[in-house]
């Protein structure tokens, strides 16, 4: 199967139960694209921009409004890696899996991040702070190995550097929320 499907399938049930989604945020997008053929991917991209991810109820809503079968919407949403069906943490870590990063040790970075964050690929930390994901190639090959956190690229990494970056964000976050210790 295509890779986008294995990331989120397991949590589908839970996400659909709790979504309290405000569909009115989508009305402008729907109005703009209703009746325009071939715009499903664009609508899903806009919806993800609004909600941060694609709750199941939103997929159903889009199906109804665009008059396409829910199965078609779900099929498209799970085909492409860009779409996520579960919420993401405040910081989205994209670890580059490009060839240049691979030969320069991307795997050791991944293992170190697994250890540090206690999560695996596609998962979010319990405090909702970090989501760890991978990207096929971020195109910054001369900085390999690279990771991107909320759009900012970091490289060249070592396991040690990667962990320090995460700890830095974590510390800043704790300070700003005033939660000195747990």
């Amino acid at each position: 199967m295509h890779c986008s499907s294995y990331n989120h399938d397991k949590n589908l049930g839970s996400s659909s139960v709790q979504d309290n989604v405000d569909f009115s945020l989508l009305s402008e997008v729907i109005q703009c694209y209703q009746g325009k053929k071939g715009s499903l991917i664009t609508v899903l991209q806009k919806a993800q921009e609004i909600y941060g991810y694609l709750p199941l109820s939103v997929l159903k809503y889009i199906a109804k409004e665009l008059k396409v079968k829910p199965a078609v919407v779900y099929g498209v949403a799970t085909f492409y890696t860009q779409f996520r069906l579960t919420p993401v943490g405040k910081y989205l870590i994209l670890l580059c899996q490009g060839t240049a990063c691979h030969v320069n040790g991307a795997d050791t970075i991944k293992t170190a991040l697994y250890e540090e964050l206690k999560i695996k690929e596609g998962q979010t930390t319990e405090d909702g702070l970090f989501t760890l994901d991978t990207a096929a190639c971020l195109g910054c090959c001369s900085l390999a190995p690279v990771m991107m956190i909320n759009g900012q690229a970091y490289g060249p990494l070592t396991p040690e550097k990667a962990i320090n970056i995460i700890r830095g964000i974590y510390a800043a976050e704790k300070e700003s929320t005033g939660e000195g210790e747990n």
Binding site: K37, S39, L40, T42
Partner: peptide, 25 residues
């Protein structure tokens, strides 16, 4: 401009067209 959504196979011409049409590539 149409934005792709992350699928390597969409570099293939007919898959690209399917994706442009809003379907699975």
């Amino acid at each position: 401009i149409k934005q792709g959504a992350g699928a390597f196979v969409c570099g293939e011409e007919t898959a690209l067209i399917a994706s442009l049409e809003g379907e699975r590539g």
